[in-house]
Design a protein around this nucleic acid. Structure first.
Lengths: 339, 339
DNA sequence: GACAAAATTGTAAGCGCTTACACTTTTGGC
DNA sequence: GCCAAAAGTGTAAGCGCTTACAATTTTGTC
């Protein structure tokens, strides 16, 4: 195949008999272009198979036609689902998806925030997935000027889609308490600097409060959203001497890990210990894991569409909204009455 | 925060007392720059916190500093793992990762190949993950001029990292046959147009051949790499009236789905049916799934590093190599002797 | 030292697009 | 029909970088 010269806006201009400038405006649907011109341009462009150069467009002050998706880790089930759903929506709107995984590492995370100004010239917007923000980071994000949208975040000055995490955790915990358990352990997300300040932890605590129970520090353990982290966390709990009759894991994968460790220690579920998670992972049904179901792909797709909207009308002022999707407790076989 | 003017190469040139051109060369480690100049440039650049503009660099014929990772689907465990591992390596080499999921859809897939020339101007290279190639697609890829590397592919004119799929499938099947099973069913990847021509299917068939057994078409079913696909595939098998005493699934997630359906139908594993997969997914241990373990993240990281090497020396001619990593049969509890 | 060759550095012309501004044409009110 | 306002179109100046090629300096040889 011969390396044919790339089709530029110039070619379109010549073929349509108009100036580059008019072509540029027509292509981007800007005002002040006659219908006739628009038509000619559209025809010429499609005939030539013209695709604007992202680099040139960007350099001249236009858009990069790409957005960054930032996730605490890309391997967890929840993130793989939301990323793919978001990627689809973005792709349909003509945006490339630049994946940035923080790999659950503080250093990577710091690097990301330090490089924001740099990021700002490579993408048009940012989609944050459950990225726990430290003080000042919201400001840094806003300051870099990129439109932002997020999944699973709180009190942020941009559009967010999520579930009511506190409520979901409350549902799970309340379920356990309703079954007569009062010696509970909790796996809390390790993504936040302060484990006991995540919304899910708060929901857990609130449920205990309502039953006049208090949280024992030894029953709280941090875990990432993975099976291995769940395993380790439960093992840690046991090492500490905690012998809860029920465990609430902040996500199903962590709950799977908990099940694994419990079995390794000869503790049977739900006979000795009840376990509940959040997510409704495809394996949860098979394993009989009781959980609080949440729509996952929907969150990614929804947040991506909100971001696209922002990207389309950068000018229009906009009141950021927080969209909460429903969660539902699904009782299965890993939870039962305390004997 | 004040929107300060971006630091350009011009600023570095002025501060270092050299010309833009020399700075450009020094920054890219090109020859014909004195050590002294290199030093001054490096110092000035770091003092100003200079980062080259990807757009300008690209437009002027330089690189985009980003590569595309293309996966048949981004949600499967294997791909989430390899993508993250590759993203890390690429990131460390200064490349952004553009994620492209084919979403297991023929239309998306076709679109991707049709848009290759377009892709070529947005990224510097492509990392293909188990993308089944139709005739002509290899040529299309080569023609677009982008350096390519891949994971899990065969007979391709670029660097590849993978396992010996045929052998892995043979290992799994041989294990089943060795246990006395002769009525086998197989879940084969649906990603290829011809299900019975995937390497894993060939390994399956070869093992049968060696035992003078033949493959019955009703015992072959297509499935994607997901639990749900595995469920459906096994259900389909049962609907067809197949009553195999052992099932080989092309990946662990599909095997999980098989387990699910079997239980729904009152068939117990391994009493009635033996099941074996490939992967060694973190859940497989817990579920007792017999499987052929493969290094997963390693493949993504390795392929990414090979691609980076290609990217560094585009000029140097290069003999593409196929790197095969080892696999290992892990016998657990879902396989046992046929009664 | 003189001079050619080699090494280093600078000049300037783009890369393909956006956009301020100038210019031309159309529209509409009287 | 006339004229100002509105609408449409074109000109040209960059955006920040790469890269021929020209200009300059350094090196090495006799």
């Amino acid at each position: 195949m011969v390396r044919t010269h790339r089709v530029t806006i110039q070619d379109v201009a010549v073929l349509s008999g108009l100036s580059i400038c008019t072509v540029s405006r027509a292509l981007r649907n800007l005002p002040n272009v006659s219908d006739k011109a628009r038509h000619q341009v559209a025809e010429a462009a499609s005939k030539l198979g013209y695709k604007p150069s992202a680099a040139a467009s960007r350099l001249a002050g236009g858009s990069t036609r790409s957005v960054a998706i930032v996730a605490p880790t890309a391997t967890a089930w929840f993130f793989a689902q939301t990323v793919e759903a978001a990627e689809e929506v973005l792709g349909d709107s003509g945006y490339d998806t630049v994946l940035i995984s923080l790999r659950n590492k503080a250093t990577v995370r710091r690097q990301f925030f330090a490089d924001l100004s740099n990021l700002a010239q490579r993408v048009d917007g940012v989609l944050l997935l459950n990225v726990g923000l430290a003080p000042g980071e919201v400001e840094a994000l806003v300051a870099c000027g990129l439109p932002v949208a997020s999944v699973g975040m709180r009190n942020v000055p941009w559009d967010n889609v999520g579930i009511d995490d506190e409520h979901a955790a409350w549902q799970a915990t309340q379920h356990l308490l309703g079954l007569g358990h009062w010696d509970l352990a909790v796996l809390s997300s390790n993504e936040h600097p302060v484990v006991t300040e995540t919304p899910r932890f708060r929901g857990f605590r609130r449920a205990l409060d309502e039953h006049h129970l208090t949280v024992h520090p030894d029953s709280v353990v941090a875990a990432g959203p993975s099976i291995d982290d769940g395993r380790r966390a439960m093992a840690e709990l046991i090492t500490r001497g905690a012998r809860p009759t029920a465990v609430f894991a902040h996500c199903d994968e962590a709950a799977f890990g908990v099940l694994t460790t419990l079995r390794e220690h000869g503790l049977s579920v739900p006979k000795h210990v009840s376990v509940v998670g959040i997510d409704d992972h495809p394996m949860s049904g098979f394993l009989g894991l009781s959980t609080v179901a949440q729509p996952v792909a929907d969150q990614g797709a929804f947040a991506a569409s909100l971001l696209c909207e922002r990207l389309l009308n950068t000018e229009t002022p906009h009141q950021p909204a927080n969209h909460l999707l429903d969660t539902k407790l699904i009782e299965r076989k890993t939870t039962r009455h305390k004997r």
